[in-house]
Structures are given as C-alpha cells and as structure tokens.
Design a protein around this nucleic acid. Structure first.
Lengths: 224, 224
DNA sequence: AGAATTGCAAGTGCAGTGCTCTCGAAATAG
DNA sequence: CTATTTCGAGAGCACTGCACTTGCAATTCT
C-alpha cells in the first residue's frame, strides 16, 4: 500500500510547489513559469505537466495552500486563548494575521495584492479563502452571544448583505456588530497592506506599534 | 518660442506614457516593455530611449503621474466643500479616493498593489506620493484648530512617529487625532483594496454602501 | 552656419513561453 | 507473469521576445 510510486508523486508535487513558491517570491506571480520550475528541478518541462495540468492550476494550488496556512494560523491563535477572553482572542487573531503577513510577505502579496493579470481564481479557492474570515466571524458571534445583541441600524443595502452573511453562521449577529467587524477587517488589512507594500516608510517608524494600537481601537469597537 | 520640436517632444512623451499606461493595464506593471511601446507607436525601440533613459524611469513617471492625479482629485474634492464643513470635506475627500480608484483600477493597483519585483521607487516619488495624504492631514489640522485639542495618550513609539509627522505641518495636531487619522486612512485604503482586488465578492454585494458607512464611522471618529 | 535634437537601422547578448505528442522504461495490479 | 498504468525524456509547435548601445542622416534651433 505504501507505493513507491505514490510516495514519489507526493514528493515531486511538493517539490514543484516549493520551487514555484520560490519563483513567485523572486519574480512575482505574474512571471511564474512551468519551464523554469522544470529547469531548476532538473526535469523536462513536459514532465511537470504530469503533476499540474496548467500553469494556472499550479498557481491555484499555491493560492489555496497559502489561504489554508493563514486560516490555520488564525484558528490556532484564536484557540490559544481562553474562549471567554474576547479581547485576548481578538488580539491573538489579529496579530496572527499580521505576523503571518510579515513572515510570508510574498504569500500575503499573492493573496491580497494585485490580482495576477489573465488569471481568474476558480471556485475551489472560495472555501480556503474564507477560512480566516470565518474564524473572525465566529469570534463576533461568540462575543454577541455572551454580551447581548447590539441595537442600531445600518444602511439598507448593507442589511441585505449582512443577512446573506449571517445565513452561514449558527448564531445570528447584529447589524451593528457586523458593521464594526467590517470596520476592523478593512482597517486591519489596510494597515498590513500599507506596511508591507512600503507606504508607511517615511511616515511611521514603528509599524508594529501602530498595528497594535489599531487592533486595540477595533477591540473597543467590537467588544462592549 | 513655441518650438515645433518642443511641442513634438511633449506630445511624443505623452503618447509614450499613454501607451505605457495601457500596457500596464493589460499585462501588469511587471511586464511593461519599452519595445512593445515602440511597436505600438510605430517607432523603433531605440527612439523611445530619447525620451526615457530606462524602463524603470518610465515606470517612475507613470507612478508619479498617478500620484499627482490622485492628489489633485483629493485636493479638488476637499476644496469643493465649504472649509468649515468638516464632515462634508471628509466625505468628499474619502469619496474622491474611492471614486478615483474605481475609475482607474490599474493605476490604483500600480500605486497601492504589489510592488513591482526588481523595481525600487526613487526619491522623486516621495513628494507626489504624499500629496493625497497631505490633503487629508490638512483637514485634520483644520478640524483640531477649529474644535480644540483632543486629550489622550497613544503608545510611546507612536508619539515619536507623530512628532516627526507633525514637523511638516503648520499647526500641530494631537496624538489622539493623529491616531484616529491613521485608523481612518488604514480602513479606507483597506476597504478600497478589498473591493478592487475582489475580496468582497461573495461577501458584500454593495461595496459602495459599505464604503460610505465606513467613511461615516471614521467621520464620527475624527470630528468631535 | 554650427550645434543640438531626433529617428532609424543594425547590432549585442540574453533569452525564453505554454503546451502537445509519441515512445520506452519502470512500477503496479490482476 | 502478463497487462495496464505511470512517468520522464525528447522533439516539436506556435509565438516571440527583452534591455540597451552605436553610428549616421535629417531636421530644427540659435
């Protein structure tokens, strides 16, 4: 059952992905090339096609992998704090995203940077892509379940959007908290993007401190 | 004095930039090529070097142009509202960034998306790059000049960062307002980036409404 | 009229890209 | 122990480049 062939396939696939990630890191996702991977693998280009049907399929694999890793990091961070310590959970989750981005800048860029021209993400990516946001959403649900529903109104079109989002989660969440969640999500991703893509240079010398301070402000927003 | 040559030079330069922008739009900034521009211009590649010393210089010009246009849009929006209507000014400025991004997605991506691999922005870009933020900063200064200084403390490292930033502006601004400004900036850019790069798909059907709602929340933050 | 600007041709020196097809050697399955 | 599947290699197809320099002639400016 082990299968020397099966094992070889797994290893080669992993090696291809590893080299592809390296290539994306150095030349950007737009210049990912199966031939170059084959070359550094000491293989012939056609052989790589035994493992990935196309360049785009390989790219999709890279994206899915990165989303999964980010999602796992957020889930682990969230789980590492007592479930009722909402502020701690929020801080841990937010920091895990920030840390992951700083440690894997090219992967963050692959997920949240400029889309690759000519590449359209297939539906397979939707699930993995929503893993980290689902973790954040569960935190919101937990907060409101414990502390009571928030009163307040959001603009009508957003009410509909939030209704659709709520459908995917066990306990409902109020419009206001969802709105605060959006605020925090946008701010968090914006701060990371600005930092990682160099827009805080000559502006903020301690981006880590800025991020922490922002996360605290978001905590005040989502936790009563 | 008109100078047929001078005029031709200006026109050709503009045409090169126009075609370059088109190319960036279609294939991404990483694949910007002087040869391709020369081809669509009906010129020979070496001639383009009479106008731009290198590919990177052309790219820099593109970036500077885009920053200037964004800056001009924000300044115009800010100026189109009575100076004392702070909420109106904030809304106008924020919306002008959002609108500009939606109307010029590839330019927004060029400025705020993944940095071009192998390209380092020269110092010439710093000035233009800070034009739109300077406009926002002036709004903050105006707000605090009119409504009084905010009390409150921010983490120590940020105090230093804010001190350096303040040095560039006539009237000082409180740490707290600066912090709220950072919050709004990050949130705004984050929301636009998420929308433009497709991360709100399957999440929010009315991104415009979300942006407006966020801008209102930021207004509550920066305007007493 | 001399100087500067511009475009062209040609060249240097470097490459590739994605993807398909056939064929033989090996590993597995029956 | 044969039959099937798997996989790498090689060749090939269709498509093309890229950045940047040099020498020369025509045009425009001063």
């Amino acid at each position: 059952m082990a299968g020397i062939r099966e094992r070889a396939r797994v290893e080669t696939t992993a090696e291809i992905v590893r080299l592809a990630r390296l290539q994306v890191e150095q030349d950007g996702a737009a210049n990912l090339s199966l031939r170059a991977i084959a070359r550094s693998l000491g293989m012939v280009s056609s052989s790589v096609y035994r493992y990935f049907a196309s360049r785009d399929e390989l790219l999709t694999q890279l994206i899915v992998d990165s989303y999964e890793r980010l999602g796992a990091a957020v889930e682990a961070a969230d789980a590492s704090v007592p479930a009722t310590d909402f502020r701690g959970r929020w801080r841990a989750a937010a920091n895990s995203i920030h840390d992951w981005a700083i440690e894997n800048p090219s992967e963050y860029a692959l997920l949240f940077g400029t889309p690759v021209p000519g590449y359209a993400a297939p539906p397979d990516t939707i699930g993995p892509a929503s893993r980290y946001t689902a973790a954040l959403m569960r935190l919101l649900v937990d907060i409101e379940t414990a502390t009571g529903v928030r009163e307040g109104v959001v603009p009508l079109p957003l009410q509909h959007d939030f209704d659709l989002l709520r459908a995917f989660f066990p306990a409902p969440t109020s419009d206001v908290l969802m709105m605060y969640g959006m605020n925090s999500w946008a701010g968090m991703m914006g701060a990371i993007t600005l930092e990682l893509f160099g827009h805080l240079r000559n502006v903020i010398d301690t981006p880590g401190a800025l991020f922490d301070a922002l996360v605290d402000q978001y905590a005040d927003l989502i936790i009563p």
